[in-house]
């Protein structure tokens, strides 16, 4: 897949800017992937919980099968208030579960 990654991005970004736009999209794609990789290593190395480790691995596998991730990230970060409220509700529950359940 890596050998024709530029073509994939070119295809995906037809309606948007070319050239520099694709360059920056590729940069962010590699940034996302390296972040996920480093994050998984970090979780596997430091977290004592098996569930968390498995969870991180599953998420990593899931994301790796759905590259390119950049467009999904962009779609999840629009100005819409629905998305923000969804994530806020999720965060509130997550914080309470983490602090009270103590993963």
């Amino acid at each position: 897949m890596l050998d024709r990654v530029y073509e994939i991005f070119h295809e995906k970004m037809k309606d948007k800017g070319q050239g520099m736009g694709i360059g920056s999209a590729l940069t962010s794609e590699f940034l996302m992937l390296s972040f996920l990789l480093i994050g998984t290593i970090l979780v596997l190395r430091t977290a004592n919980s098996t569930i968390l480790g498995f969870g991180a691995l599953i998420i990593l596998a899931g994301v790796l099968f759905t590259v390119p991730t950049v467009f999904k990230v962009e779609k999840e970060n629009t100005d819409s208030i629905n998305l923000s409220s969804f994530y806020v509700a999720l965060t509130l529950a997550l914080l309470l579960i983490i602090f009270l359940g103590g993963i």
């Binding site: 509700a89 999720l90 509130l92 529950a93 309470l96 579960i97 009270l100």
Partner: peptide, 19 residues
């Protein structure tokens, strides 16, 4: 989006229950 609404609803229920 329906799925998301359900997830958000469940999260809010959990949060309000705990509080």
């Amino acid at each position: 989006q329906q799925g998301r609404n359900i997830i958000a609803g469940v999260s809010l229920v959990i949060a309000s229950f705990v509080i």
